[in-house]
């Protein structure tokens, strides 16, 4: 079942002399339950693509379908409902609400959705347990370490039980231990709950937790790598592709082998 379909999307910034084309007629699909990584050099348009797919931004041209709905045509009032019911988002810099405690950050959206209190508490207990947040629930964001903040951000994104989770460099600010813990957890929920995940990263190790990597360059689809064997082999494939995308064409890289 198809979860995301990106059809001939282009995105430009600026005007006339200062026109910058961040995405250039890009198309691809993501099926339900996939864990897809998006990689590419700096300025390739990774974050712009993620923003458009997660309803943060709109494309200049093209269409995006998420969970069967064309999000590029949804009016703002319907987008709010769509986000609540379908989307979770993990940011690189966490974006926790500083005025609210950890538990308040986690339940805020659910409280406004008027979900029964028992259900909210059940989800809070579940994700606190799984992301090891039980002792942090009464603390405020400024009292947390970076790893703790990112776990809270992940729990908050999952509290609404989204159909698709978007993550923008989620391990970018984390040390390797915290990063590994988070990635393992994302891989677990991807497997167990069939939550579709799309993650933007520039790090091959982080990307190796995905099932498929979409490489983009200069705003256009460049290539993709699908995991077939072990994570180590997948990691090597990613490294190879990164080397190829760094200069020349992929065929050049293969020829050198």
């Amino acid at each position: 079942m198809r979860m995301v379909e990106v059809k001939q999307v282009s995105k430009s910034f600026g005007a006339r002399n200062n026109l910058v084309r961040a995405l250039n007629n890009i198309s691809f699909t993501i099926d339900r339950g996939e864990f897809v990584g998006v990689m590419g050099p700096s300025g390739a348009g990774k974050t712009t693509l993620l923003n458009i797919m997660s309803t943060i931004d709109r494309p200049s041209v093209g269409r995006v379908y998420v969970a069967g709905q064309e999000i590029t045509a949804l009016p703002e009032r319907d987008l709010a409902t769509f986000r609540r019911e379908n989307i979770g988002f993990i940011f690189q810099d966490f974006n926790l609400l500083p005025a609210l405690s950890v538990s308040e950050n986690l339940v805020m959206v659910l409280s406004m959705l008027k979900i029964p209190r028992d259900e909210v508490q059940k989800r809070l207990a579940y994700y606190s347990e799984h992301l090891n947040l039980n002792k942090l629930l009464t603390r405020y964001p400024n009292e947390l370490s970076i790893g703790q903040k990112q776990r809270v951000a992940a729990a908050r994104a999952l509290m609404t039980q989204p159909k698709i989770l978007f993550a923008d460099e989620p391990t970018g600010s984390l040390d390797s231990k915290s990063a590994t813990e988070l990635l393992q957890y994302l891989a677990t929920i991807n497997l167990e709950n069939e939550t579709t995940i799309m993650m933007v990263t520039h790090d091959a190790f982080t990307a190796s937790y995905c099932n498929r990597i979409v490489f983009i360059k200069d705003g256009a689809f460049y290539s993709e790598v699908v995991r077939a064997g072990s994570r180590q082999q997948f990691f090597n494939q990613i490294i190879d592709m990164q080397a190829a995308i760094g200069g020349g064409k992929i065929s050049d890289f293969r020829n050198r082998d």
């Binding site: 997660s54 009032r77 709010a80 409902t81 989307i87 974006n95 926790l96 609400l97 609404t160």
Partner: peptide, 16 residues
């Protein structure tokens, strides 16, 4: 502004 952005992406309506 960043808090407002976060609330929007969390699914809160602009009215809320």
């Amino acid at each position: 502004r960043s808090e407002i952005g976060l609330m929007i992406i969390s699914g809160l309506s602009r009215g809320q």
